[in-house]
């Protein structure tokens, strides 16, 4: 092979490529197995998968789907957990289990929306601001600092009061103070990565800004962004619950974990399950996201 490189047959490349790709796949598997070997991470993943499955298949899983969506059932008001109503019923007699499942739909979907759209807006802006130190970059940085200098929940509350309370507006109101965190994270990463020689090598080959941003910078900042997305899902669920709890988010009769906690608050001493059940659901999912995100971060960090 050394004497004549052209003697290599072109179709043997496919076999070569297959071999290497298989090896790389093995490494990925190994990483995943290491992740799942951590008991806490494994448990968190199970909780998350169950919560997600329950949310997706709510109409088939929930015992009383109509009540989950808000149908009133006044004969069975405030019933404690029983065989008919596993987790009891609320003030309007609705089955708590169904409500929690349907509420999970709103909370999980809302949280995911917030985080993904925040990243969707924040990451490109951060890439641009980090790579360009000119006026456009400076403007983006100042806007980010403006947002970060106020507590985000305060901004979200002000915005949802301005544009009206509701499930959809609450998500928008939360995306607005949320994206600057991604911009700042990405900007910082880019500032260090753009010093790397491979960026200079690409510049030397005459490649333009956008090419370098998307082919060289973006793939190298995805790891911290993915970890931040995972770790942010918990806080996003809490934030949307908070807005619902104070009446600025999801409106009754829709179910939302934060809203359900608020609905149960007047009767917390006698009918505790109305607040505790959605509270626990939120707690478990948020903790699971955090533990899983942390574990993923550790594994990715140790792989460099």
């Amino acid at each position: 092979m050394k004497d004549n490189p052209m003697a290599v047959q072109t179709d043997s490349y496919d076999i070569m490529a297959q071999k290497v790709i298989q090896e790389h796949r093995k490494v990925k598997w190994f990483q995943l197995r290491r992740l799942l070997k951590r008991r806490a991470a494994f448990l968190s993943l199970i909780i998350l998968v169950l919560a997600l499955a329950a949310a997706v298949f709510a109409p088939w899983i929930a015992p009383y789907p109509e009540q989950g969506q808000g149908a009133v059932n006044l004969e069975h008001r405030l019933q404690p957990p029983s065989s008919n109503y596993v987790l009891g019923t609320d003030v309007y007699g609705r089955d708590m289990l169904s409500r929690v499942i349907w509420g999970g739909r709103i909370s999980l979907f809302g949280g995911a929306c917030i985080v993904f759209f925040a990243a969707f807006i924040g990451v490109p802006l951060g890439l641009w601001a980090g790579y360009n130190e000119g006026i456009s970059g400076a403007v983006i940085s100042r806007i980010v600092e403006l947002f970060l200098s106020f507590p985000s929940t305060l901004i979200a509350m002000a915005i949802s009061i301005l544009i009206g309370a509701g499930w959809f507006t609450a998500i928008i109101a939360l995306i607005i103070p949320w994206w600057p965190w991604y911009t700042r994270l990405v900007q910082g990463e880019v500032l260090s990565i753009k010093q790397m020689l491979y960026v200079e090598a690409a510049q030397m080959l005459g490649y333009g800004k956008l090419y370098i941003i998307f082919r060289h910078l973006l793939p190298n900042i995805m790891t911290p962004v993915m970890v931040m997305i995972l770790l942010d899902l918990g806080p996003a669920i809490i934030a949307i619950g908070l807005l619902s709890f104070i009446g600025l988010g999801t409106q009754p009769p829709m179910a939302d974990w934060g809203l359900m906690v608020w609905e149960g608050a007047p009767n917390i001493l006698s009918e505790w399950w109305i607040s505790i059940v959605p509270g626990c659901a939120m707690f478990m999912v948020v903790i699971a996201f955090n533990i899983f995100g942390d574990a993923l971060k550790d594994i990715l960090d140790s792989n460099g």
Partner: peptide, 27 residues
């Protein structure tokens, strides 16, 4: 400027000090 430099870029290249940092780890 960069646009007109392109034909010359091919004729002049550079090898950097730190080989690890000069190769994109994701490529």
């Amino acid at each position: 400027d960069n646009k007109w430099l392109k034909p010359y870029r091919a004729k002049m290249q550079m090898v950097f000090q730190d080989p690890k940092a000069s190769l994109n780890p994701k490529m």
